[in-house]
Every structure is written in structure tokens, then in C-alpha cells.
């Protein structure tokens, strides 16, 4: 199971994402923003950070990177893609997921261990969780407020596409406490908090994040979730 992790100029969490893939039993493959070759990977992680310095809008320039041209095309054909934080912003800018991420309503950068409720657990990235399971993973963003028009929000909720929701505190003003969403097929998932920072007890608040990567590895090895 080869999972590609893209490095853009300004990516920060590509190494942690690759490490999380390895700890989950997968084989991480580094992908470069300027290269349109996906090197035969079975899935892709778009990591957190500040691609292209967050210039213009978060993810707006990354969307047009050569590697994204291939990823957008392959994602449309079913390639599993997980976008974390800046990766989530890139997925929205690419129109692979609906809505947009905007400046936190309180204007401050937020960094905290965040409790979430897992709501959709049949996606390529969330099969290892139980529906309704509560997890705690780090959240760190300045522009993490999820917004979409009411019709889009109603469709996300009605079709069960909300993957995770903030519990206890809404850290950034996201509408309807949405922390992560998916496409209808469940192959593409965008998440604002960082599961890749919660895969080892030494460095994370929990190991609750590992499930995202285990889910992807399991879907390709055929094991039951």
C-alpha cells in the first residue's frame, strides 16, 4: 500500500504525515509539487502547512501546481485523497470538496487538543473508527472556519457527508461545527484538525489520529476494518 505525501513549498506536516503512514503499516512515497507523476501510489495525502506562503488565499496557488493537475484528475476517477488543514483548503479551492475555509472568526491562530465526534465512518480514511466515536487530536490553524451556503450545508448533512464535528468548543467559527467532510463516494476527505500529530503517545495527546491512516492501508490490503 503506497500512500503519496505531497510537499509544496511551505508544507510543514509532510514528514509527520509520512511517518503516520509508516506507523499505520503503509509505504509512504514523497511527491513533489512540481512533478505531475504520482509514482504509482494508491492514495494521496495533502499535508498541512502554508503552501506558497498562503499568498492570495490558502491553497489557491497550490491548486494549480503540476502535481494537483494529476491529483484532481485521478481523484475524479476514485483515487483516495486525504487533505489535512492546508490540504483541506487545497481540496476546497480545487472544487474537489464544496465550501471554503476562511479566517477564524476570532482572528487568532488557534492551537489546541481538540475533541471531535466521528460521524461518517465508511470512507477510505475513516473505516477504522466507530460511528459516534470521540477522538482528541491537535488542531492548529488561522483560517479554519468552514463556510458554505445553506443549501450546501443542508446537502452535506442530509447526505451524511460530514466526517467529523467539533465537540465542546467550536475553535474557529466553522458553520454547524464542521471539522471535516467527504465526497459522496467517500474517497476524498478534508479535515481541519491534524490526525498525523496524534499517532504516538510520546508526541501526541493521544494515538487517536492513527485510524485515518490505518483505514486507508486496510482498504487496500483487504482486511476488515
Amino acid at each position: 500500500m503506497k500512500i503519496g505525501v505531497v510537499t509544496f513549498p511551505g508544507s510543514l506536516d509532510d514528514r509527520d504525515a509520512a511517518r503516520a503512514v509508516r506507523l499505520a503499516g503503509g509505504d509512504p512515497v514523497s511527491l513533489w509539487h512540481g512533478d505531475d507523476d504520482l509514482r504509482g501510489v494508491d492514495a494521496v495525502v495533502l499535508p498541512g502547512g502554508f503552501s506558497y506562503g498562503d499568498y492570495l488565499r490558502c491553497g489557491a496557488i497550490a491548486r494549480f501546481a503540476p502535481v494537483m493537475t494529476t491529483i484532481i484528475q485521478r481523484a475524479g476517477e476514485g483515487l483516495p485523497v486525504l487533505g489535512i488543514c492546508n490540504g483541506f483548503q487545497i481540496l476546497c479551492e480545487s472544487h474537489l470538496l464544496p465550501g471554503a475555509l476562511t479566517r477564524n472568526d476570532h482572528l487568532h491562530f488557534v492551537c489546541r487538543d481538540q475533541r471531535l465526534r466521528m460521524e461518517r465512518t465508511d470512507t477510505a480514511w475513516t473505516k477504522a473508527y466507530a460511528e459516534g466515536e470521540e477522538i482528541v487530536i491537535p488542531l492548529k490553524n488561522g483560517e479554519g472556519g468552514y463556510v458554505a451556503d445553506d443549501a450546501t450545508l443542508d446537502r452535506l448533512e442530509g447526505d451524511g457527508l460530514v466526517v467529523a464535528r467539533y465537540l465542546e468548543v467550536n475553535p474557529n467559527g466553522s458553520l454547524r461545527d464542521i471539522a471535516g467532510i467527504s465526497n459522496p463516494a467517500g474517497t476524498i476527505v478534508g479535515l481541519m484538525p491534524h490526525p498525523e500529530h496524534a499517532v504516538e503517545s510520546l508526541t501526541g495527546p493521544s494515538t487517536d489520529g492513527l485510524g485515518f491512516f490505518v483505514s486507508a492501508v486496510r482498504s487496500f490490503t483487504g482486511a476488515n476494518a
Binding site: 477564524n104 472568526d105 451556503d149
Partner: peptide
């Protein structure tokens, strides 16, 4: 400009 219905914290 942000659309009128989008919150503008800045």
C-alpha cells in the same frame, strides 16, 4: 470582496 453573507472578521 467577500460576499455580503460571509462573515468578515478582519
Amino acid at each position: 470582496m467577500l460576499k455580503p453573507e460571509i462573515l468578515d472578521p478582519q
